[in-house]
Simulated assay, not measured.
Amino acid sequence: MDLLQPLNLPPYPFRLNEEEGRLYIFDELRKKKLLLTPEEWVRQHFVQYLITEKGYPKMLIKLEGGLRVNHMPRRTDIVIHNRNGEKILLVECKAPGVTITQKVFDQVARYNTVHQVPLMAVSNGLQHYYCKINVSSKTYTFIEDLPAYQATV
């Protein structure tokens, strides 16, 4: 699969470089270069989409944070906080070749038992799904579009 596959997200001028036959992308938030995988390509695009199109502040975005689910270590792709430090959005990114199935939603729902966020997004870069979460009733409702940051505060 082409690592630089066009996605259903706006293009961004990423800093890419090749070393010893491997392609790297510079992560602006973590301030380091990362091996470019199809999933990382989606994650970096989605982060830029959140910042530039939806107005989510860079300083409130946490990438690949650790958590424990059923005593097992896991990593969430993107978690966004509000200015009070409360988690407001959980994003799960998959490679473009990965079909978004119920299994993927179940994975994110398990993560959300820890995070307890009111908004969730799942994307493979080609398809994006957004949900409002009712944490107390453990239900979710699909929504058409992800709200801008200002609408969440």
Rank of each mutant, 00 (worst) to 15 (best):
D106W: 08
V98M: 13
F142A: 15
A151V: 03
T76E: 13
T113G: 04
V117D: 04
L7E: 10
R75G: 05
P96F: 01
G66C: 02
E53V: 07
T141M: 13
T139I: 11
V79W: 00
T139P: 03
Q102T: 14
P38F: 05
L4S: 07
I80D: 01
E20K: 00
R110L: 13
I78M: 05
R15C: 01
F105L: 15
V47L: 08
Q102P: 00
D2K: 00
K103A: 14
V42T: 08
F105Q: 07
I133N: 02
Y129W: 10
Y140T: 10
V91M: 10
A148I: 11
V98Q: 14
K58L: 03
M59N: 09
L36P: 04
V135M: 03
V114H: 03
A95D: 10
K54V: 13
R22V: 04
I80C: 12
S136K: 15
Q127G: 03
R22I: 04
R75E: 11
K138P: 02
S123E: 01
P11C: 03
G65A: 03
Y149H: 12
Y24E: 00
V114A: 04
E19A: 06
I143R: 01
Q44V: 08
I88Q: 09
N70V: 01
T37M: 08
G66E: 12
V98Y: 15
C131A: 14
T99E: 15
E64F: 08
E19R: 00
T113I: 05
E53M: 08
P147R: 06
L9C: 03
I25M: 09
V91K: 12
K103G: 07
L60C: 07
K87S: 13
D27G: 05
Q107D: 05
K87L: 04
H71K: 14
E144A: 14
S123L: 14
A121F: 05
K31S: 15
N17M: 02
R15K: 13
N134K: 10
Y111W: 01
A151F: 07
H81F: 14
R110W: 12
R15I: 10
